[in-house]
Computed example of a mutant assay.
Amino acid sequence: MLRTLIITVGLLAALPAAAQDCPDETQSGMNKCAADAYKQADAALNATYKQIIERLKDDADTTKSLVAAQRAWIAYRDAECDFITSGAAGGTVRRMLQTMCLEQVTSRRVDELKPLLECEEGDLSCPVPAP
């Protein structure tokens, strides 16, 4: 129990401000706040990903590479969040912690992909063509 509490406190300290500022401090309220934050991060990821796919529409090989990378990233994200929250296994807080982890990892992925939309023409180190 103490181990779970310590892990939970450690995770909570690293939470995004939106999750920390949830107006409903019940478990179901915090679950909803976490889910809302994750939905926003997921929407940002989907929008960024679609923009990259659109720019790659004439390059089937690079599109295939991006799809493979994204599928591998999804497997990583899910496994990482399962691992990170394993200390809360069996507890009511785990769902919230997993959702918060998903939001954090997804937001980092958006931060990784967005620069690909700002590549300069002729930059061979960037797989996404300039608009």
Rank of each mutant, 00 (worst) to 15 (best):
Q20L: 15
G90N: 11
P127W: 03
E118C: 05
A19R: 06
L102C: 05
E118W: 01
M30P: 02
L56K: 04
I84C: 07
R71K: 13
R3A: 14
A18E: 04
G90M: 09
D59M: 06
M100P: 08
R71G: 10
K39Q: 11
E103C: 03
A19P: 02
W73Q: 08
W73V: 10
D24R: 12
D24M: 11
S28M: 13
A17F: 03
A18V: 05
D36G: 07
L102R: 15
L113D: 01
S28P: 08
D123S: 02
A68C: 09
V9N: 05
V105G: 01
R71W: 05
C126Q: 00
G10K: 10
T106Q: 01
A17N: 02
D42M: 05
A47E: 15
F83E: 14
Q70N: 06
C126T: 00
A44N: 13
K50D: 15
D82S: 14
D58R: 06
E25P: 03
A68D: 09
T106V: 02
R3F: 12
L45N: 02
K114T: 11
A89Q: 14
A37W: 01
A43F: 06
A43Q: 13
N46S: 04
L97P: 00
E80C: 08
M1G: 08
D58C: 07
K39M: 08
T26H: 07
E120W: 04
G122V: 00
P23N: 03
E103F: 01
V93M: 10
F83V: 09
L116S: 14
R77P: 01
T92I: 15
R108M: 10
I52G: 01
A75L: 13
Q70R: 10
D111H: 07
S86K: 14
I74F: 12
A14P: 01
A37H: 06
V128D: 03
T26I: 05
L11G: 14
I74N: 06
E54K: 11
L116P: 05
E118I: 00
K64M: 06
A88S: 11
L5Y: 10
G87L: 10
W73A: 11
P16V: 03
E112P: 00
Q70M: 10
E80N: 14
C126P: 00
L2P: 02
M96P: 02
K39V: 05
K39L: 09
L15V: 06
S28I: 13
S86N: 10
D59N: 14
L124P: 00
Y38D: 02
Q98K: 15
I84V: 15
Q20I: 08
P16Y: 01
A34S: 12
A88C: 13
T99F: 07
P127M: 04
L15F: 09
M96Y: 04
C101M: 02
L15C: 04
G90I: 06
E121M: 05
Q104F: 07
G29D: 10
T99S: 06
D24P: 05
K57C: 04
R77W: 07
E120K: 12
A130T: 08
D123V: 04
Q40H: 02
